[in-house]
Amino acid sequence: MADQKPQTVTIDGQAYSLDALSENAKQQMANLRVTDTEIEKLKQQLAIYQTARTAYARALAAELPSNED
């Protein structure tokens, strides 16, 4: 079998071996991953809502009476 390199993670420009991290550090990394995933979901939802708002504003503008007399 080929020698396998230990897995590493880079944090603030510093590489760390996953084997060298404490269980608490590994849990914090997992927490960060979950949080980052949720932030991305929220960004996607915000983009959807902003698009809908723009469409609603345009639909409203089309329904407003014209000022042409």
Rank of each mutant, 00 (worst) to 15 (best):
A25K: 11
T8F: 03
M1D: 10
S66D: 10
Q45W: 03
Y16L: 01
A61Q: 07
L32V: 00
R58H: 05
Q28R: 15
R53P: 00
D12F: 09
Y56Q: 09
L46W: 07
V34W: 01
Y16Q: 01
Q4L: 15
A15E: 07
A15I: 04
G13D: 06
E23K: 10
E38A: 12
Y49H: 02
T10V: 13
P65R: 10
I48T: 15
Q45A: 07
A15N: 12
L46P: 00
A15K: 13
K5C: 09
P6Y: 12
N67I: 01
L21G: 02
E63F: 08
Q7I: 05
Q28S: 12
Q44F: 02
A62Q: 13
L60D: 07
E40R: 13
G13N: 03
S17Q: 11
L21Q: 09
P65H: 08
A59K: 08
K41P: 01
K5E: 15
A61W: 02
V34D: 07
A20N: 08
L42I: 08
Q14I: 08
L64W: 07
V34I: 11
T35K: 12
N31Y: 07
Q28Y: 13
L64M: 15
S66C: 04
A61E: 08
A52R: 14
A52I: 06
L18G: 05
I11S: 06
L60R: 12
Y16S: 00
N31T: 07
R53I: 05
A55L: 07
R58G: 03
L18M: 15
D19W: 01
L21E: 03
K5G: 11
Q4S: 15
A30M: 10
L46C: 02
Q14F: 03
D19A: 11
Y56R: 06
A57Q: 12
D19Q: 09
K41V: 10
L60A: 10
K26Y: 02
T35I: 06
K41W: 04
L32A: 06
L42K: 12
R33D: 14
G13V: 03
R33K: 15
S22T: 15
A47T: 08
M29D: 02
P6K: 09
L42Q: 14
Q14E: 14
P65A: 11
T10A: 05
E68C: 01
Y56W: 10
Q14W: 03
E40N: 12
E68I: 12
Q28I: 11
R33L: 14
D3C: 05
K41R: 15
R58I: 04
L64T: 10
T54Q: 15
T54M: 09
A20K: 06
S66T: 13
A20M: 02
A15G: 02
A61P: 00
I11L: 14
Y16I: 00
Q50L: 13
R58W: 01
L32Y: 09
L60H: 06
S22F: 05
R53H: 12
